[in-house]
Design a protein around this nucleic acid. Structure first.
Lengths: 98, 98
DNA sequence: GACACGTGTCAGTCGTAACTTACACATGTA
DNA sequence: TACATGTGTAAGTTACGACTGACACGTGTC
């Protein structure tokens, strides 16, 4: 479990996904609301959040609202990656040994 | 000069480019040699190095070999990015103010 | 029932980065 | 001369992620 740097970078290399993380850094939120705030279609937000969750950058939870609607809230995971030539060298080494 | 995080991430999100950085972290090298070592076509290496250089992750220099050939050597720049939700939040803020 | 809100997913289209092949240009050596 | 090495770039294909629209499914309210 070296928290796959190359995978994380691939997911992080998207303006929209960065905007999603930035939005979630301001507090947890749910899919439809995020779509409205960021001016994106809901399926698109859904897809981006899924990819972010796959690499563990955000965590999602189901929650029932007061009026009984099932809503999917997301939070940012408290990640911290150090991005240096050496870190990349290690990541690539790990990557290439199968 | 906020060293554009989103641009850097976009460039860094490529297995091949990560391999290039890893290779260069082991010492400076030139295009054709890198292509051989990483098993990539030379134009492809050329393109990836150009993108890496555009965001300042590597630096290239022209050098004349002993037998008079013009060779393009590259070195990794000593970068260090801290990748956290807060850093992304700042980067996005900078990104959105035009 | 019709509507508003939430969830999820599937089938497409579209744009672009990745990649290859081929070209042009240098130099030094057999 | 021909061939090896190096450089750069332009044209074309291809693979893939991004994105939209439509669908199905829930709930509570008018």
């Amino acid at each position: 479990m070296g928290s796959d740097l190359v995978g994380v970078l691939a997911v992080l290399a998207s303006p929209q996904r960065l905007r999603l993380i930035a939005a979630l850094a301001g507090g947890s939120n749910y899919v439809s609301q995020l779509a409205r705030e960021l001016q994106l279609s809901r399926p698109l937000v859904h897809m981006h959040l899924r990819r972010l969750e796959e690499v563990g950058l955000v965590v999602g939870r189901m929650e029932l609202s007061a009026d009984g609607k099932a809503m999917r809230f997301f939070d940012v995971a408290p990640f911290a990656f150090q991005l240096t030539p050496e870190a990349i060298q290690d990541a690539v080494r790990t990557m290439e040994e199968k």
